[in-house]
Design a protein around this nucleic acid. Sequence first.
DNA 1: CGGCGTTGTATCGCCATGGATATCACGACC
DNA 2: GGTCGTGATATCCATGGCGATACAACGCCG
Lengths: 243, 243
Amino acid sequence: MGIEKDFSTKLSAGDVTIERRDIEMLEAIDRQGSMHGAAEELGRSYARLQNRIVELEAEVGQLTERQRGGRGGGGTRLTDTAHELRRRFDRHATELDGVATVTESVFTGTVDERTGELATVETAAGPIVALAPPGVREVQISVRSDAVVLTDPDETPEPDGTSLRNRFAGTVTAVEPGEEIASVTLSLAEDEAGDGNGNGNGDADLEALVTRSSRERLGLEPGRSVVASFKATAARGTRLDSQ
Amino acid sequence: MGIEKDFSTKLSAGDVTIERRDIEMLEAIDRQGSMHGAAEELGRSYARLQNRIVELEAEVGQLTERQRGGRGGGGTRLTDTAHELRRRFDRHATELDGVATVTESVFTGTVDERTGELATVETAAGPIVALAPPGVREVQISVRSDAVVLTDPDETPEPDGTSLRNRFAGTVTAVEPGEEIASVTLSLAEDEAGDGNGNGNGDADLEALVTRSSRERLGLEPGRSVVASFKATAARGTRLDSQ
DNA sequence: CGGCGTTGTATCGCCATGGATATCACGACC
DNA sequence: GGTCGTGATATCCATGGCGATACAACGCCG
C-alpha cells in the first residue's frame, strides 16, 4: 500500500522536548569546539542555537562549558551530561527504529478475561495473554516478529519452567532468508494447518525473525512443525472500534 | 534525572506524513458525519481540514465519501481504507508506546566478531549476539525488559532447541511487584554474584518483566538463581563514540 | 422555486519559528 | 595595550502554517 511506519524520537525533560535537531547540535559543538563553528556547520543561526542551549540547560542541567575570551576567543566543550544525553537519545532512537522496521503479526479477538492490565483474548489462533487497554472488548493484538521464540517441539517439554506465557504449535509456511536474519512465517491454525500454498491471509499467521544459525539449527523449512512462544508483556492490544 | 523517553508516531506515505492530528481528524469526521462538524469539534478551521483531506487522499487513496447537497446538505463518511489506516496507526502507536514505557538494560562492550548485520559483543556479562550498526567497535547494547525470558535453571537443558541465542545464568537481586506485571532485576556477574545489596551499578545487571503468575510459578525472589535468555534480534547495538 | 447545510475554493491576516544582522563583553596571546 | 575569535544579547525580517472570512456549487425538501 506504500504506507510505512514512521516516528520521530524525542526525550522530554520538564518543559522542553529534546529532538534530533538538538542532538545534532550537540554533536556539531563537540566536533567544532565552538558554538559559532557548530552554527556554521549546521547552516543555522548562531543566535538561535545559543538560545536553544540555554533553554536546554535550564531543564537538563549543564550541557556545555562555555568560555569566551582567550586565544582564539575561547570555545565550548560538552559535559559528561551532554554525552550521556546523546547516548540515551541514540539508544532510544534505535529502539524506536526497531519497532518501525520490524514486521508484526496481528490477531483480532475479543477480551475474554481480564485481571488489571492483563487480558486473555480469544483469537483465531487460540487464547492469547496480552497487555490490553482498559474498557475494551474488541481488540487487535500485535506481536513483533523479533519477540517470537521458536523451539523444536520434541525438546520443549516444560510448559511451566519459563516465563513465556503464550505458546502455540504451528507449521512453517514460508521462509524468507536474509543475509543473517531470516523471516519465518508460521500458520497456527489448528484445523487447516499446512494447506500448502503460503497465502494464509487468515488471522492465524505468525511471523518470527531468527538468525541464520538458528534457522539451520532448527531446520526451519516449509512444512516443519515448530512451537512458537512469546511473552505476555510483548503482546500488546489496541482498541478496534472508533471509541 | 527527570528525563523521559518520548516520541511522536507517524505514518509516511509518499510525500505526506500522517500524524496523530490527522487520525484525530478522521475520527472526528467519523463521529460527526461531516467535515464541518469535525472542524467544529476539533476547534480548527474547515478550510484547512478540507485541504488536508485532499492532500492525504492524493497519497493514500480515497479516505472519505464526500457528498454535497441533499437533505441536510450532504456529509462525508469514512471508507474502509480510512478505518484500516486508523487501526494501523493505533497499532503502531501502542508499539512505540511500549518501547517508551518499558525499561531497558544497557551493556557496553566492544564488537568481537561480525557477520553482516549481526555481531557478537564482549560485555561485562559475557558475549552477546546482537544487531549492531556497521563500522562500529565500541557499542552500547540495550535489551528491552519485555524481551527477556526467565527460566528455571533445572528445567532448561536444551540450549540448541530454541531460537534464543543469548543465555545467561544470573541471580535475582530485586523484585518490584506491580499489579499484574512484576519487574525483576538480575545480576549476571559471574564472580561477584549475589553481593546482597541490590545496587549493582555494574554493567552486568539485567531487568525483566514477568507476569505475576510467572513470578509465582518460578518463585522469583531475591537470591533465586535463574536463567535469562533473549533473542539476538531483540538486542540492538548503538554506537558509543561521537562519530 | 427558494431555503438550507453541506462540500469546494480563494484570499487575507495573524502568529510562531527561526534566520540575518548588529552590538557588546570577554580574555589569552602577541 | 591592541587583536582576534569567541560567547551573550537584542532587534528586524522572511517564511510557513493555520485560522477567519467570503463566495460559489450542489442537491434534497418543503
